[in-house]
Structures are given as C-alpha cells and as structure tokens.
Amino acid sequence: MELIRGTHNLRPRHHGCVATIGNFDGVHLGHRAVLAQLRARGAALSLPVLVMTFEPYPQEFFARDNPPPRLSRLREKLSGLAAAGVDRVLVLRFDERLAQMDPEAFVDELLVRQLGVRHLVVGDDFRFGRGRAGDFALLERCGRRHGFEVVHTPTFELEGGRVSSTRIRELLARGELDAAAALLGRPYAVQGRVAHGAKLGRTIGFPTANVHLHRRSTSLDGVYAVTLQTADGRRFDGVANLGRRPTVGGTREQLEVHLFEFCGDLYGRAVSVEFRKHLRAEQRFASLDALTAQIERDAQAARAYFRALSAS
C-alpha cells in the first residue's frame, strides 16, 4: 500500500482511481464492507483503490479542547487499511485552509484534476467544504458534470444496530469488550513502543511494560485482562492498567502491562496490546501496600479469565 502525505506529493501516475473519503477510525466491519465494495468496483474498472483521510480528524480540529477519543492512531489505521486491500491512502492535513475551501473547488481541483476519480463512495450524510456546504447531492451533480459515479456507503448492521466508530467507543467506555470486538471483527488493541518508566512496579513485585499511547485520550479506563503481542508474533497474557495512576500521583494517561509468563527485555520494541476483559475501574489507594494487594487480586482475576477461555 502506498502512503501519500498531502496533495503536494500527488504525481501524474496517481491520476485515475476509485475512492472513498472518511476518518476510517478503527477500520471496523462497516468500513471493511465499504472497502470490499470499492475493491470490486476498482477491479471492474481496472483502477486502484484510494482512501482519502485526514490528520487531525475534522472533529479534532473543530473541538480542540474536547475531541472525541480515537480508536486508532494513524499508524494503526494504515495497517488496517492495508489489510483491507487498499492500494493508496492520501492523508490531508485538516486545517483552516481545507475547512474554508469552496466545496466545488475541492471536487474540481482534487477529485477531478489531481486524482481523476472515476467512482466515489461516501456516506449520505457526508459534509465538506466551507460552512459544510458540500453534501452528497452536490457530489452527485459534480459527478454528472465530470463523468464520475457517486454512491453512498451501504448500511452495515450487526448486533441490533449500525456498526460505527461512535458505537464502538461507547461500548469500550462501558467495558463491553466482547461487543466492541464483534463490531471491529477483532479484539480492540492499541499499538506502541515499550518505554522506560519510573520502574515502581518491579519494587512491589509487579514489573510492567509501559506502552506509549500516542493519543490525547482513549475510550478505556481501568484494569483489564490483556494479551500482548510482539512484532515477531509472540503472545503473552497479562493484566494492565490504563489510566492516570492516582495512587502514585500520575497526571497523564498511561498503559502499564504486567505479563504473567515473560522473562526478557521489551524496551524500545513495538508491541500490540489486546484488551480482553474489563476487571475494574481505576481507583486511588491509601498506600502502596493496599495497591499491591489489589494488583495481586487483579492478576488472579485475569489468570482465571484466561484459564476459563482456554477451557471453553
């Protein structure tokens, strides 16, 4: 899959494609249904599949002080899009210039002149351009004028409702990890590199791998049974805390993972952490001894969960 950062990196060879536009946060089953439809159309037209997405997300630009939590950062999203068979991803910086762009100029300059879009798939509630004046009807009119097809994304429902990133965030926030995994098509996971921390865990008998989240906020909070996977495919079960660590005066969200059957050094290594079961909310303890006793109970609960899982 080819990553194109910004329109200044578009070349003549990028002209001609089938395309879709959106955040694709989490690359869930609904997204993958759209991409499968787009791949089929691309194959019929002998054209590559292109996804146009934005950094930051438009919601993050317009709600700078309180943006919605992300399901995936850019690296994770690109991995999901590549696995879904996308040929090219165009990442546009969402800024004031793009927000104020005339909708028809967006279509004429980018979709027609630079990309040569022949088939476009968007949500029927898709809005773009200055004052959000661009909509599905405008795209249809432009498509008829310039000779490209415009279709809306098919509704993809599962577990009694439409599959969406918002719905998955809500499930994660309520600790309903199995339901979120059903909509994602996989357990919810975050990727990052293991970094050096304060090394407090090893002093109380629970050494942890500290994984950088690289995001302002998440839909998760608390203690979880998790599975950590290394870049070479090794998998280790464990227990993790995602939060601000109030007992030790923490101030920012941090992911700390204690692995049950691991001996070695993960510092600097890329890992993926799957969240399998929510055990409890994060809380403040009166002392380190009380915290240590609770971590032991959490570890026992996580071990029991994995034993039951393997026996089922």
Rank of each mutant, 00 (worst) to 15 (best):
I295R: 00
M52G: 05
R144T: 06
Y188P: 00
R162D: 04
G16C: 06
R127A: 08
E96R: 15
Q254W: 04
H214L: 11
H15N: 13
N210T: 09
A286D: 15
F62A: 11
V271S: 01
Q191N: 10
T247A: 10
F260L: 09
S217M: 09
G6P: 00
L228G: 07
L138K: 00
A301E: 12
R39H: 10
A231L: 14
R11V: 10
D25S: 07
R215Y: 04
V239T: 07
H119V: 02
G185C: 04
L120Y: 01
Q37W: 08
Q300V: 14
D25W: 05
D265R: 11
A19H: 02
P56M: 14
Y305F: 15
A133E: 13
F126W: 13
G197Q: 11
T166F: 04
G268T: 10
G116F: 08
G134C: 08
L90Q: 04
E282T: 05
H214W: 02
T292K: 15
Q59N: 12
F148Q: 00
A286P: 02
A105F: 10
F62P: 08
G249I: 12
L184Q: 04
T247R: 09
G42L: 01
R13S: 13
F61C: 03
D237Q: 11
I168W: 07
G205F: 05
R174L: 14
R202G: 04
V194W: 03
L177C: 06
P187V: 02
L228R: 06
V122R: 05
I21K: 01
V89W: 03
V121C: 11
L242G: 03
S72D: 06
R202I: 05
G161R: 13
A83R: 11
E253N: 09
G264V: 11
D87L: 05
N210H: 07
R216L: 13
A270E: 13
F54I: 10
G80S: 06
E176L: 15
C263N: 14
G161C: 13
R284Y: 10
R75G: 09
L47Q: 13
V223K: 01
D108G: 02
D289H: 12
A301C: 11
R32P: 03
V86W: 00
P67C: 03
V86A: 00
A36G: 11
A311F: 06
V49C: 04
T7P: 02
L98F: 14
T218N: 00
E149K: 06
H14C: 09
E170Q: 15
Y188A: 02
P154R: 15
Q254G: 07
L220C: 05
G250Q: 06
R186P: 01
S310T: 12
L120V: 02
P207E: 05
A225F: 00
A43L: 12
F61H: 07
L47D: 04
D135Y: 03
Y188D: 01
L38M: 01
A40Q: 14
R130W: 06
